[in-house]
């Protein structure tokens, strides 16, 4: 059986909130290392990969592999009933029909309990190759959200270009064009505002802004976001969580004409 308790429901609420508009039905794959999720969007352009490691929970117990087939819209409805600071416990039997969720507000001695019906989801798993990316950009997640929102007003696409001088986001549309350039920036007193660019070779790729703005719904999960680019492979956008857990998005590029 699965039993996994989080000190605050916030992490799980925010993670589900970040992906629910991109993927609808997906399996939460539970085993002794934690809870993982991999799912593509309907048009097979983007892939979500989430890993909540066992260490993120206390306690965490999962004796055998359990796939929890969940409709994320339904899960969101249930999670809406959880206070951000409630403790959250997920429980399931070995061959479960339901996922049991318990929210506890210890200060108020209030306990709420829900059973969410599960479904059988025949899921395709994709092998994600280990990639040595040409450019890895770490930047404030709020800045990335601002850039994608601002450029969305200009165009449906953005070209991300990483060079030794910085990273440039540029869009061209019917009304004109716009760009934002960020240079490496490491303020000692404000680590959250750091912009770091690791570059093995310059790279420029074009992506759909519709998907990028969607990924930015994960912004509350982490102050920093990592963008990893290599020529002609999907972009990886990573929101790192405590203890090595993560929420990653992969987005296939737009190539040629």
């Amino acid at each position: 059986m699965l039993e996994a308790r989080l000190d605050t429901a916030n992490l799980f609420k925010s993670a589900v909130d970040a992906i629910k508009d991109l993927v609808q039905d997906c399996n939460f794959d539970c085993n002794d290392s934690g809870i993982a999720l991999q799912a593509m969007d309907n048009s097979h352009v983007a892939l979500v990969s989430m890993m909540l490691k066992a260490e993120a929970f206390s306690p965490f117990r999962c004796d055998r592999n359990i796939a929890l087939g969940v409709n994320l819209t339904s899960l969101t409805k249930v999670l809406r009933a959880a206070g951000r600071d409630d403790t959250l416990t997920l429980k399931a039997e070995d061959a479960p029909d339901v996922l049991n969720l318990v929210f506890e507000a210890t200060a108020q001695d209030r306990i709420s309990e829900y059973d969410l019906k599960l479904m059988d989801i025949d899921q395709e798993h994709l092998g994600i190759p280990d990639t040595e990316y040409a450019a890895t950009i770490s930047m404030p997640s709020a800045e990335f959200k601002r850039i994608t929102t601002d450029l969305m007003a200009m165009s449906e696409s953005v070209t991300i270009e990483a060079t030794k001088d910085g990273v440039k986001f540029s869009s061209t549309g019917d009304i004109g064009n716009g760009s934002i350039t960020l240079r490496q920036h490491t303020p000692v007193d404000k680590p959250n505002e750091t912009v770091e660019i690791e570059l093995s070779e310059p790279v420029a790729l074009t992506f759909s802004l519709k998907y990028l703005t969607n990924f930015c719904k994960a912004q509350p999960l982490s102050n920093q976001v990592k963008l990893c680019l290599s020529a002609e492979v999907p972009l990886m956008v990573e929101y790192g969580l405590e203890g090595g857990s993560y929420l990653r998005f992969y987005l296939a590029p737009k190539i040629g004409d």
Binding site: M40, S157, T172, T206
Partner: peptide, 14 residues
């Protein structure tokens, strides 16, 4: 601005 590729063109089914 280029043709949108599919993620399936890069990652293989396991």
């Amino acid at each position: 601005t280029g043709k949108q590729q599919s993620i399936l063109g890069f990652f293989s089914k396991t």
